[in-house]
Design a protein around this nucleic acid. Structure first.
Length: 482
RNA sequence: CGGGGCGUGGCGCAGUCCGGUUAGCGCGCUUGAUUUGGGUUCAAGAGGUCGGAGGUUCAAAUCCUCUCGCCCCGACCA
C-alpha cells in the first residue's frame, strides 16, 4: 500500500480494491482467516443498503423473522442436491458444554432447510399461503479463497423464503424479487445490472431455476450481485410442506428463496470507484456531503467556522447526511483527497472569499477538478442546491456506469472472435449459445469466462451458436467473474 | 488442498545468505511552532517478547527442527 492514495486500477486492480476497502475504512481483516471486520463506515453503508432493500420487501408484502444459526446436520441431508452443493463448505459444531453432541450442528450456510422444517409445521391449508418471510442474518461458508466483501467465510445477507400454493405464483414471486433487486441496484446503487437466468452449472443447489442480477465491475469482470431461486416442490417434498387445497387434497407447496449479501458493497466499490478511491452513490452514502472549512489567518478562522456551522445545521435540518470536517491538524488539500478517497459524493468548501459573499463552493466527487465545481452557491439556499447536486451525481454515476457497461459489452459470433475480444477488451460477451455443460466447462478452462446468465432482454431472435454452430434462439452473456 | 510470497514498534520495510555493540529507516502517533482555496515544513519525543516453541552456540532477528498464521495465484462459491 502506498503512503497516500490507492494503487491505480491499471497497475493492479486487486490491489486497488484491497487498498480502497482498507484505506476508506470499510473493513479490516480479522484474526480468523477468511472473516472480516466491517468497520463503522462500511457498516453504515450496509445499513443503508439494508434499509433500501427492506423497504422494498415490505412494499411487496414480506415480513421479517429470525431463524436459528445452528441447524441439525440431518436437515441438510434431506435434499440431495442441496447437501451435495454445500457439504464442502460447511462449518460444523461437534461439541457443546464440554461434551460431544449427539448430532453435529451446522452453522447455517443458508436457511432453506430449517425454514422448510418450520414451514412444514406452519402450513396446513391453502389459506396459510403464501408465506412471505425474509430474514436478515449472517451465514458461514468455508470458502477456500476469500476476498473482503466479495467472498468471506462469514457474511451478512438477507434471505427471503416464500411458500406458495401454485407453481405460477412461486415463479411470479421469484421474478418479482429479481425485479426488486434490479430496481434497488439501478435506483439506489446506480449499478446498471443485467437480469437473467443462470445456467445449470451455476444454479443454486436444490433449485429448479436460479436467476441473478449481474453487474459489471471496473475491470470488465462480472459480479453476481443478487440471486432469486425457484425451488419448485423440491424443498417442500424434502421437508414435507403440504397443505390441503380447496378440493380437500394434499399438495406440496412451491417455494422460492432470494438473497443479497454484503457482496453488494463490493459491487458498489468496483462498479464505481476510480483511481482516487471509492465513489459512493448519494442514496447509499453514509456521508453525502462533507464540509471543508478553509482559512489562512487566525482572524479568518472564526467567520469561516461560523458559516460552516450554519450550513452544517441547515443541511442536517434538511435531512441530508452531512459531516463538518473541522480538523485543525490537516490542511484543506489533505481533506479534499481524504474524502474523495472515502467516496463522499459532494464536498462543500467554505473559505474567506466565500464568507464575504455569504456563499459556498460545491464539488462533485464524480467529476474531477474544476469541471465538477460550482462556485458562489448562496448560503441561504444551500440545502436545495446540495440536494440537486446529489441527484445530479446519482444520475451521473448511473449514466457513466451504463455507458461503461455498454461500451464493454460485445456481440461475437465465433469462438475465435470470442477469445480475441475477451483477451483484448474483456467485458461482457453476448453470444448465441447452444452448448452443453461440458462445453461451458471447456470454455472456462480455456478462457476463464463462464455463462453469467441468459439475459431476459432484448430478445434477438434465432442465430448460430458461436461455439457449436447449432441454430438456437438462446442468448447468453459470458464474462470473467468474481 | 496444489503452487508462490511473507511474518521485525500502529502501518510499510531494511537487517537474515556470511551469528557478534544500545535492532535501523520511512510513514503514522504525541508535544510545540509553522502552514491551510488540492496531500505544508521543522524541532523534540514516545513506542519493538524480531509470529510461537524447542535446539545449537560464549553469543541467535540471523543457523537447525517443529509449529501457528496471513496474503497472492489455481480448483469451488453470494
Amino acid at each position: 500500500m502506498s503512503e497516500l492514495g490507492v494503487t491505480p486500477r491499471g497497475e493492479d486492480y486487486s490491489r486497488w480494491y484491497t487498498d480502497v476497502v482498507q484505506k476508506a475504512e470499510l473493513a479490516d481483516y480479522s484474526p480468523v482467516k477468511g472473516c472480516m471486520v466491517i468497520r463503522p463506515y462500511g457498516y453504515t453503508l450496509w445499513e443503508n443498503i439494508q434499509a433500501a432493500l427492506d423497504r422494498r420487501f415490505k412494499e411487496t408484502g414480506h415480513v421479517n423473522a429470525y431463524f436459528p444459526l445452528l441447524i441439525p446436520m440431518s436437515f441438510l441431508r434431506k435434499e440431495a442436491e442441496h447437501v451435495a452443493g454445500f457439504a464442502p463448505e460447511l462449518a460444523v459444531v461437534t461439541h457443546g458444554g464440554g461434551k460431544e453432541l449427539e448430532e453435529p450442528l451446522v452453522i447455517r450456510p443458508t436457511s432453506e432447510t430449517i425454514i422448510g422444517h418450520m414451514y412444514s409445521q406452519w402450513v396446513r391449508s391453502y389459506r396459510d399461503l403464501p408465506l412471505l418471510i425474509n430474514q436478515w442474518a449472517n451465514v458461514v461458508r468455508w470458502e477456500m479463497r476469500t476476498r473482503l466483501f466479495l467472498r468471506t467465510t462469514e457474511f451478512l445477507w438477507q434471505e427471503g423464503h416464500t411458500a406458495h400454493a401454485t407453481e405460477q405464483e412461486a415463479m411470479e414471486e421469484t421474478l418479482r424479487m429479481l425485479d426488486v433487486y434490479a430496481d434497488f441496484a439501478i435506483d439506489e446503487a446506480a449499478l446498471p445490472v443485467v437480469q437473467g437466468k443462470k445456467s445449470d452449472r451455476e444454479k443454486f443447489a436444490g433449485a429448479i431455476a436460479s436467476y441473478s442480477i449481474e453487474a459489471m465491475m471496473g475491470n470488465g469482470w462480472a459480479l453476481q450481485s443478487g440471486t432469486s431461486h425457484f425451488m419448485g416442490q423440491n424443498f417442500a417434498r424434502a421437508f414435507d410442506i403440504k397443505f390441503l387445497d380447496q378440493n380437500n387434497e394434499f399438495q406440496h407447496a412451491w417455494t422460492t428463496s432470494w438473497g443479497v449479501s454484503t457482496r453488494m458493497v463490493g459491487a458498489i466499490i468496483m462498479g464505481h470507484g476510480d483511481d482516487q478511491g471509492l465513489m459512493l452513490p448519494p442514496r447509499l452514502a453514509p456521508i453525502q456531503v462533507v464540509i471543508v472549512p478553509i482559512w489562512r489567518k487566525d482572524a479568518e478562522r472564526g467567520p469561516v467556522l461560523a458559516l460552516a456551522d450554519q450550513v452544517h445545521q441547515a443541511l442536517r435540518a434538511a435531512g441530508i447526511r452531512v459531516k463538518l470536517d473541522a480538523r485543525d491538524e490537516v490542511n484543506a488539500g489533505f481533506k479534499f483527497n481524504d474524502w474523495e478517497m472515502r467516496g463522499v459524493p459532494v464536498r462543500l468548501e467554505i473559505g474567506p472569499r466565500d464568507v464575504e459573499k455569504n456563499a459556498v463552493v460545491l464539488a462533485r466527487r464524480d467529476l474531477p477538478g474544476k469541471e465538477g465545481k460550482t462556485f458562489g452557491v448562496p448560503a441561504p439556499g444551500v440545502a436545495a442546491a446540495v440536494r440537486e447536486m446529489l441527484d445530479t451525481v446519482q444520475a451521473g454515476m448511473l449514466q457513466r456506469a451504463t455507458e461503461f457497461r455498454d461500451a464493454n459489452t460485445h456481440t461475437v459470433t465465433s469462438y475465435d472472435e470470442f477469445r480475441e475480444v475477451l483477451e483484448a477488451q474483456g467485458g461482457f460477451l453476448r453470444v448465441h449459445w447452444a452448448g452443453s455443460n461440458e462445453d461451458e466447462d471447456l470454455i472456462k478452462q480455456e478462457t476463464k469466462a463462464t455463462v453469467r446468465c441468459f439475459p431476459f432482454d432484448p430478445p434477438e431472435g434465432a442465430g448460430t451458436c458461436f461455439y457449436t454452430g447449432k441454430r438456437t434462439d438462446r442468448v447468453a452473456i459470458f464474462a470473467r467473474a468474481y
